[in-house]
């Protein structure tokens, strides 16, 4: 039981860091440009499809990951410069509708290009199979790699934002948009850059998760909604909040799905009640956070 619990903790952590890659882009784009981007899930899908295609063509997983970053960033730059930058000054309603329209275009466009059947993308041989952890737990190496990659990206993002000139501009942009452009920073280039960064992270997480799960049309939307829950819990606009929120949501979801049916079987004799509760648990967590801190765990008070 203890070993099983530790394994589930690792699983929750792995889910959390992947959610963080999604949520980081969403929250950055919102923090800096004030844009709600529903099409973020489509960029995740674009990354996964690009990776699967490149892996099939070249056989190289590394190239596939590079492709996921590049394709999602390129798609991000495309929609940012053509469409989304016209929406920064609009209200959230227009943003929601326009990015909802983008989901329709991306989903069916992907199907038109890649066909109606899921694509093949699998773990490269050096990273496949289980390893034995201290304590005798057999755990898939690739999931450990995901945890490591996610934490490395988080660290990189933190360094980028706090230690580089671009990062300071991003921070300043989030704090006061007009001030930054008054200081002579080319704000529209900064916006495109931030959007491309967020898109690339989404694309990378699509490729990594797609490797473990499946690469198919519509894969982005469930993740998108969970990522929304993450940034609401963490505080919209806060990258640290996204990290904390993502790990919290990852652990809650994984442990809830594991423990609640067991608890309910013990109490009522059937797992049903626990399953119903488990499927709603992260939303309940979100509601609880809102009652205590409406601006999210790390958000600035409105």
């Amino acid at each position: 039981m203890t070993l099983l619990l530790i394994e589930q903790l690792l699983n929750g952590l792995q889910l959390g860091v992947m959610l963080f890659l999604m949520a980081a882009g969403l929250t950055l784009v919102f923090g800096v440009m004030g844009l709600i981007n529903l099409a973020h899930g489509s960029l995740y899908m674009v990354g996964a499809f690009a990776a699967a295609w490149v892996a099939a063509q070249t056989g190289s997983y590394l190239l596939a990951l590079v492709a996921s970053l590049a394709a999602a960033a390129a798609a991000g730059v495309l929609i940012e410069t053509l469409i989304l930058r016209r929406l920064y000054a609009r209200d959230h309603l227009d943003q929601v509708l326009a990015t909802f329209a983008l989901i329709l275009i991306f989903s069916e466009g992907t199907r038109a290009v890649f066909g109606s059947f899921p694509l093949y993308l699998t773990i490269p041989p050096p990273l496949s199979g289980p390893v034995t952890l201290p304590g005798g737990i057999e755990y898939p190496l690739f999931r450990l790699v995901l945890i490591g990659a996610g934490l490395a990206v988080a660290l990189g993002l933190w360094l980028l934002i706090t230690r580089t000139r671009v990062g300071i501009r991003i921070q300043a942009g989030a704090a006061d948009r007009e001030m930054v452009s008054a200081l002579g920073v080319d704000i529209s280039r900064l916006y495109t850059l931030v959007f491309a960064l967020g898109a690339a992270l989404a694309g990378l997480s699509g490729a990594l998760v797609g490797t473990l799960q499946s690469v198919e049309v519509g894969m982005g939307e469930p993740v998108l909604i969970t990522a929304f829950v993450v940034i609401v819990i963490g505080g919209i606009g806060s990258v640290q909040g996204a990290l904390v929120g993502a790990i919290l949501v990852g652990l809650t979801q994984t442990l809830g799905a594991f423990l609640l049916p067991l608890a309910s079987t013990r109490l009522t004799g059937a797992p049903d009640a626990g399953q119903v509760l488990a499927s709603m648990l992260i939303y309940i967590l979100m509601a609880l956070v809102l009652i205590v801190r409406p601006q999210g765990l790390m958000g600035r008070p409105a």
């Binding site: 709600i36 909604i225 929304f228 609401v232 309940i284 809102l290 009652i291 409406p294 409105a302």
Partner: peptide, 17 residues
């Protein structure tokens, strides 16, 4: 208890619940 973007995402999440 919230407003703006929070409100959009929270209502979305409750719908999913």
């Amino acid at each position: 208890r919230t407003s703006g973007a929070y409100f959009i995402m929270i209502t979305l999440a409750f719908g999913q619940m």
